[in-house]
Design a protein around this nucleic acid. Sequence first.
DNA 1: ATAGGTGCAAATGTTTTGCTGTCAA
DNA 2: TTGACAGCAAAACATTTGCACCTAT
Lengths: 133, 133
Amino acid sequence: MKLGSRTTKQKLVILDILQKTNCHPTADWIYQEARQILPDISLGTVYRNLNLLKSLGKIQELNYGSGQSRYDGNPNNHYHFVCEKCKKVVDLDLPVVADLDEQIGKNYGYKVSSHRLEFYGLCDTCQKEEPTT
Amino acid sequence: MKLGSRTTKQKLVILDILQKTNCHPTADWIYQEARQILPDISLGTVYRNLNLLKSLGKIQELNYGSGQSRYDGNPNNHYHFVCEKCKKVVDLDLPVVADLDEQIGKNYGYKVSSHRLEFYGLCDTCQKEEPTT
DNA sequence: ATAGGTGCAAATGTTTTGCTGTCAA
DNA sequence: TTGACAGCAAAACATTTGCACCTAT
């Protein structure tokens, strides 16, 4: 697998962390995980490699309202549910409507290359806790 | 129209700017516009009022990859096209699939309150300029 | 050998906040 | 009158960058 001009251990560790988790982590979470394997890795390196892996199409950057970006080790388009209370991001197992892009392109004269669909609300856990608030 | 506990001129000017434009501006753009009407308004006030208006459901905050949030004076759900080159954000005149929320909720056990759909690509202007790049 | 990558720290850019004074109700 | 809001500036926060050293090729 080609990972840019040099394959460094930092790059490999970051990609591996991202591919093994399903929690759509922030850069800082990835940094904390990576330090357990490479104690001297720096946050700057994490950001540099996340940007690199993104431009290579190996990962995706997601971002919702507040603050940090989140990263997704699955490079293929898929949809997400975001819990507005606990901020959890979950993959949805829905068919991706690929020809939507083409349709929009035709109707509006744009060249559409991708789309993003996200649902917001309360996850099962947070629904139960909600009345207490 | 109720705008929180006090209706200040700053609040009114910000809401008015947002409702009269269709360019989905950043906080700073709104600040620059507002200064032409209220020269002493501060950027902090702009942010405070944008957050207030958002929590009152009068406006929406949108955010894509890089840097600043953008604001939308239309509080009703609608879909957007984002040009990846010139960063322009355009409203799409598509029917909003409201029962999507309910369906997802049923299938996954979440309480879905809203969804967001965005298309990315090149707008008509940028498509023409593209070959030169 | 050497260019691309790393660690560190400083810089950048956006948004929030503390404080004091002001004004809408 | 009074508490919510304004202006100002500093702080907070996420992310990027400059630089000197290191290392994969």
